[in-house]
Design a protein around this nucleic acid. Sequence first.
DNA 1: CCAAATACTGTAAATTTATACAGTGTAAAT
DNA 2: ATTTACACTGTATAAATTTACAGTATTTGG
Lengths: 217, 217
Amino acid sequence: MTRSNQLTTRQAEIYRAICDSFSERGLPPTLQELATKFGFNVNAAKEHVLTLVKKGYVKYTPHISRGIELLQKKPAGIPVYGFVPAGHPFMSQENLAETFVNVENYLTASRDLFGVYVKGDSMIEAEIGTGDLLFVDPKQEPKNGRIVVALVEGEPTVKWFEQDGNTVRLVPANKKYKPIVIDRHDENFKVVGVVVGMIRALDKKRIDEMLKYRKAS
Amino acid sequence: MTRSNQLTTRQAEIYRAICDSFSERGLPPTLQELATKFGFNVNAAKEHVLTLVKKGYVKYTPHISRGIELLQKKPAGIPVYGFVPAGHPFMSQENLAETFVNVENYLTASRDLFGVYVKGDSMIEAEIGTGDLLFVDPKQEPKNGRIVVALVEGEPTVKWFEQDGNTVRLVPANKKYKPIVIDRHDENFKVVGVVVGMIRALDKKRIDEMLKYRKAS
DNA sequence: CCAAATACTGTAAATTTATACAGTGTAAAT
DNA sequence: ATTTACACTGTATAAATTTACAGTATTTGG
């Protein structure tokens, strides 16, 4: 048997065409479409697809249209390398990536996850600053010590959550500001959700802002 | 005309089913599949899809199988609300979301973006800690003041990048550690890429670790 | 040299899928 | 009161798609 998962030039062309179909139309191609594109017979297309299956590049569900799935989902995420393993973990074969992330499967959260941008410095001691994008899970129960997004008198805020009986304390992570103390059932108070993650663009602008704060403190 | 892009309960069910098909099988459903799933006629399915098109939820390409595309790519992102607008920006109609993020289009980076997990506390003053996932762009030129991932004698590290002529200083964001000073052309030195972003899961474990560091400092 | 893998053609049939046109009944809007 | 939107059924047809089976010619590994 030949080196089992090595693609021939032709097979790589077919594989590439399948990937292109996904990125251009969001759909796998039909066998006919492949055949037309390459100017060969439908059966040739099917054989190629079955070969790609055998070599572990795609999945194929028979008896349905467009039953091709990509197994190495490049378009759905970014390769992630574990940190440290000596040598050159980077830049080598793409295959060495441990996992692929996309936001949803990086965070443990319900389907209703949403994001809010942070404005202000009230959570700076929790390493959250202006421009950061917080991921908020509205289905999760707030617990002591978690960071939550709450509406207080119509105003949204991000704070530490602390509850003692019916008294809730919303504590900012910045000594400049005072905690908000409020009754759990207060009409003007509502926890929107629990912050389960954060993403930050580390471009020049963001870095300069970060340094500015560091110098000031 | 009724409030044009408001979905009825039934329509939302159909829309949900289309989304599910994408996330479970990586494929849009055929009209028949929709019909079977809901126990109605193919034509009912088509009408529903056309309604979703009219209301701006999906795109439909006629005459091909599975010609449904999602327009507001829920499975590829998370709705993001701008922070502040008084009232209840959250919890209301999904439509109010300003944008949808996914990692790739949140960050300005080349296609070869990859991720590495952070281990250790050497970048703690730059608000980067153990467990954070850094996004690294290997195509970007390192410039003074940027955070980079470099290989020094085979060991990968995350540091501030400072260059003066041929001398490169890799500065840790933690007073406990000393900068690494090295020649730009040194064989044992290589910049792997520039850190362009970061994502952090803010679960219980991560928060506890953050608090531990805060107390210690 | 021979077997296996590669890369196809060709015809035909079976299925799946989309479309077309004609209806039905209910509820909400004007 | 009437129109419109909604949510369907039913039958029929056409087109797209997959599958099945039978070949051909070339290259590659042992």
